[in-house]
Design a protein around this nucleic acid. Sequence first.
RNA 1: GGUCCGGUAGCUCAGCUGGAUAGAGCAUCAGCCUUCUAAGCUGAGGGUCAUUGGUUCGAAUCCAAUCCGGAUCACCA
Length: 591
Amino acid sequence: MSIVKHLQEAVVDTLSKLYNNTFTEKDFQINQTKTEFEGDYTVVLFSLVKSLKQSPDSIGNELGEGLIKNHPHLFTSFNIIKGFLNVTISDVYWISLLKRNYHDICFGKQAMNGKKVMVEYSSPNTNKPLHLGHLRNNFLGWSVAEILKANGYEVIKSCIVNDRGIHICKSMIAWQLFANGATPVSTNTKGDHFVGEYYVKFNDEYKKQIKELMDQGASEADAEKNAPIMLQTQQMLQDWEAGKPEVIQLWKEMNGWVYAGFDVTYKSIGSDFDKTYYESNTYLLGKDIVQAGLDKNVFYKKEDGSVWIDLTADGLDEKLVLRKDGTSVYITQDIGLAQQKYDQYKIDQSIYVIGDEQNYHMKVLKLIAQKLGLPYADHIYHLSYGMVELPTGKMKSREGTVVDADDLVKEMIDTARHHTEALGKVKDFDADELDALYRTIGLGAMKFYLLRVDPKKKMIFNPEDSIDFHGFTGPFVQYTYARIKSILRKQSLNNQEAVSDALLPLEKELMVVLEQFPSAIESAAAELNPSAIANYVFLLAKTFNSLYTEHSIANAETAEKRALRLQLSSMTANVLESGMQLLGINVPERM
RNA sequence: GGUCCGGUAGCUCAGCUGGAUAGAGCAUCAGCCUUCUAAGCUGAGGGUCAUUGGUUCGAAUCCAAUCCGGAUCACCA
């Protein structure tokens, strides 16, 4: 149980005894005491003033004395300043907490709770390579999965690959027109980049044709509709749906190139999935659900045969769920896929990591599921994240400002190499060890940079800041870990006399932060917010570094102090490692 | 226009279930390596928490209005 919970219970209990009434933890507030005052945690008394008809100071005195009398092992002293009751937690409490947990690499994690969650993330299109936005998505999805696991959930990571549709046909047509049979192998190009080039070529040609048609007097709308390359693409989509062998053959081949490329990228950033869905397999799902919805009068059919749902009563619009020709739309297959996920895994919760431009769509999806009375409807959760923008504005492929994932990874690893070489601390590493280290640091910096911001908010990716390895960054935390490990390699951490007379302020401060790790994991899971972990881990590293510079660990004043600080160091290293692991970031033993 | 999200230091962000003098990092300036890794530490300057009004003992935090920015409202996915 956390110290805050202990304190809440103690206050409730003491208030009840003192004032012969029932209280709950909602009747008062507990905060961490500000550093300028004496004490560890603070009970805010104002809310009690009215019901108890006493001044804050008098309540504080009675409560403070009661707390110490009833819980002498927990609290040692108190003071009251302007209506705030500052309570000091006993060193005995902190030291016994330390003793129980300093060697526990699972500190803060919950036992399995028997619940299953699916986290869907990444969800790439197979017509172009992954970019910076995908990286935010991937890191978020991975981290949220780890955070949920730490809270006792069984997690299934899934990915839906957008492998069909008009956009895929665009790359295919362009390849037919312009490639002369070139392949990734013949051009020595990574498969996803190779295909992406043809997607770009399509758009260039398309624009050219539109301009030609307009020069001949066509309206813009007509030109867009009648450009030969667009007509060819639409024909190809129909051929694909009809299963025309040579189209299917080309589609499979080009998708194969892209998958090979994605595999490399996923491997390099450490992403993987337990289950991959392909839209080419799922796009017909959901039609039977539409029929069931018609039977239940949740949906209605217009004269032309198209099927709709009226969501105007819920503040949304009328939405199409089936075209007049009977083919399904985006939302139809999403309902179908949601059903399939539930049928296959009997999941208790389904989390979708999708950008906030789809807030409306996900709202509609959930609402439709609810209206259909589907059992998983209430457990659909859209983890909506904001766009990643550049200091110059949005990324635009047209202007060539899209930050490619592979390029960025490479750049980060290169930067890590430069920094490491300049510092020259690991000259004895062999080539493999160095590669692994550069990768750990480079990826650590990148993941931390993208995860440290609240997912809901759009964020600015500043290339210069992102390769900074100082301050609020991944390498800062990694460095702190490596420093501790360096000490622990040289010092034996035998399980003895860690008792100390009194914790020094910096020792206590570190202990207080360490104690908050379980709460940090819990609230990160409740909010599905990895940035809470990033902030926590940074605070912990910073607090440790202060202690480290101020007090010697290996050469402490006494043997007891030495044991205490070694245990604090060990626990800090464990928590840093666990916390970073929740972000999908590795920590190096040396750097 | 409707709906949703955001606006906090020069920049990037915390803080938002109301609490004490609004916090970090970067950048700027001044210090600290003969001792456990200086990718570190200590300190300084830097704020009309978009604006206005309301609720209250107390508002960056809650409510309302306004201004600014973004997303979305496709028989695209």
